[in-house]
Design a protein around this nucleic acid. Structure first.
Ligand code: FES
Ligand code: FES
Lengths: 145, 145
DNA sequence: CTATTTTCAGACATCACAGTCTGAAATTGG
DNA sequence: CCAATTTCAGACTGTGATGTCTGAAAATAG
């Protein structure tokens, strides 16, 4: 099992792609799906979700597409993950028990809570701007190959 | 998405339960499923996998059940996870790209690789004995409620 | 206005994981 | 031997995530 769902993976890659094309006003979903090598229709549904959540704005018709709703420096990985994934990764018990907390911990609670906090920090502190800049400067990939 | 699959969660809980019943020779799957509150048949399939992988030994007939194949101090969480999960969590790209490594990193590689290493250490260094001891001494739960 | 482009919306299909069920094989106790 | 107990094996079903398809709605260009 991967850490993130396919939907979240695609969402992150798509947003990073849009952010790395700072010059463009709107980027069409068709262009994104072609560049990332993922299904157009599936990506459309995912981006619609980001649109409804207010992370990206969209525009229909020729020259339309999607754009970030606010500066990439104010969008974190956690924003995206929370928008598309209904995951309790950062709050739930690693053994799947009901209610994770200090009151009734499972035997793994201590160690998992520490790792989870580290992961949460990474997702909350890393912005799209930082990663997109990395993509542009170092020509990092957002697709296979 | 949780970090572990249901199968892995059940496997860990079952092994911890067996380890925390040091006095017993064999623990029946029925007893385990009752205590953990999970499906008997489903748990059976999971424990059969652990048996085939050589992590537990089983015995049929009255008084039969499963037991750890070696001292709990020499079974790590990673042993269990690798036995039941065909997960690449500790080797694959967090964006799902083909081939994760320094040669062709994705923009998240650096940060994810660090977190992943921490997680891997936790799973490799934590033994069943340590956690089961914790369960017995502090009466920690392995089931809901 | 008309044709084209593009997102929006939702139905439908596919697939892997989770869970259920039935019966066979092994072991024990009487 | 016989009956009860328990694991082993595999077929079957349910469910949610993934992926595909068709058409409507909005915007642009001519
Ligand atoms: S109770 Fe299990 S991780 Fe917190
Ligand atoms: S290439 Fe993406 S995490 Fe290593």
């Amino acid at each position: 099992m991967g850490l993130l769902s396919k939907s979240t993976e695609y969402a992150l890659r798509a947003v990073l792609y849009v952010a790395s094309r700072k010059d463009a006003k709107y980027v069409s979903i068709r262009e994104i799906s072609d560049e990332l090598g993922v299904s157009f229709h599936f990506l459309t549904k995912i981006l619609q979700r980001l649109t409804r959540k207010g992370l990206v704005v969209s525009y229909r018709g020729p020259g339309g597409g999607v754009a970030l709703a606010r500066p990439a420096g104010r969008i974190t990985l956690m924003d995206i993950v929370e928008a598309v994934e209904e995951s309790d990764l950062f709050t739930s018990c690693i053994l799947g028990l009901a209610g994770c907390g200090e009151k009734k911990p499972c035997p793994l609670h201590g160690q998992w809570a520490r790792e989870r906090t580290g992961l949460g920090k990474m997702f909350r502190q890393t912005t799209i701007a930082k990663l997109a800049g990395h993509v542009v400067r170092d020509k990092l990939r957002l697709a296979d190959g």
